[in-house]
């Protein structure tokens, strides 16, 4: 099961990126294409075969994993900026893109790189899973590495959650509300992912499902909002031509 999850994530993200190409060519929200492209890159780096190949090219020291985590930071940051602007949440926007938000991003990024540098180099392993076995120091440092990696995602998700939940209850098109609900589920899964890092070992098997689920929820939420627009545009073209742009 955990073998196939990253592939599902990859397919969803890549499909979303491909589907955004026509809009991007027309100059409509290129940031969105970029978001899906980053998400696709992150999904690629989560798959063993690709990870080993790419990390090998980078020296085989798991630098690709730090890169993956930073790509994920950038992706969630960009998504959060669009979501807070779109759903009208100035407070959440400040917490993410304002000075405090950028400070948090910097702190988590620096912490991530610092913890990685403090660890002894370990052989390339996807999801960084064998790094703890390399030395006792690594094993002690690994939870901190993951706390930094997931901490920022959880911070952003927590900032987004109130705005998303509020939008679910508002009088918006059904597909937009579904999209907000899916993104809220993504935010909740992200926070759960962080909590799972500190949970007892018997819960660890569900961690990949939760973390990949977070990506799929966020992505499909964005797709829903987009479908709502497509549907509205169709209805408009069926109706009177006076409202057409």
């Amino acid at each position: 099961m955990s073998e196939i999850l990253p592939w599902i994530t990859l397919v969803v993200c890549a499909a979303a990126a491909l589907a955004r190409i026509p809009s991007t060519m027309r100059g409509v929200n290129p940031a969105l294409f970029f978001i899906f492209l980053l998400a696709t890159a992150a999904a690629v780096l989560s798959i063993e075969q690709f990870y080993v190949a790419i990390d090998g090219a980078l020296g085989g020291l798991n630098i690709a994993h730090v890169l993956l985590r930073l790509i994920v930071f950038a992706t969630i940051y960009l998504i959060a900026v669009r979501v807070t602007k779109g759903f009208g949440a100035p407070d959440a926007h400040r917490m993410i893109a304002g000075p405090p938000g950028l400070a948090v991003l910097a702190i988590f990024s620096v912490a991530l790189v610092a913890v990685f540098l403090m660890m002894a180099p370990a052989a390339s392993s996807v999801r960084f899973q064998d790094a703890g076995a390399a030395s006792p120091r690594n094993e002690a440092l690994l939870p901190f590495y993951w706390a930094a990696a997931r901490g920022y995602l959880a911070y952003v998700s927590l900032a987004l959650l109130p705005a998303l939940l509020r939008s679910v209850k508002e009088r918006l098109p059904l597909l937009v509300r579904t999209g907000a609900a899916l993104m809220a589920a993504g935010a909740a899964a992200t926070v759960a992912g962080l909590c799972l890092e500190f949970s007892p070992a018997q819960l660890l098997p569900i961690a990949p499902a939760v973390n990949n689920g977070a990506v799929v929820f966020y992505t499909s939420g964005l797709v829903m909002v987009w479908l709502a627009r497509v549907k509205a545009a169709q209805r408009r073209s069926h109706g009177t031509s006076s409202t057409e742009r």
Binding site: S23, V83, L222
Partner: peptide, 14 residues
Amino acid sequence: QDQEQTERIWENLV
């Protein structure tokens, strides 16, 4: 107002 809000969502997310 609802329409305005929806448009803003689309402007940013579509």
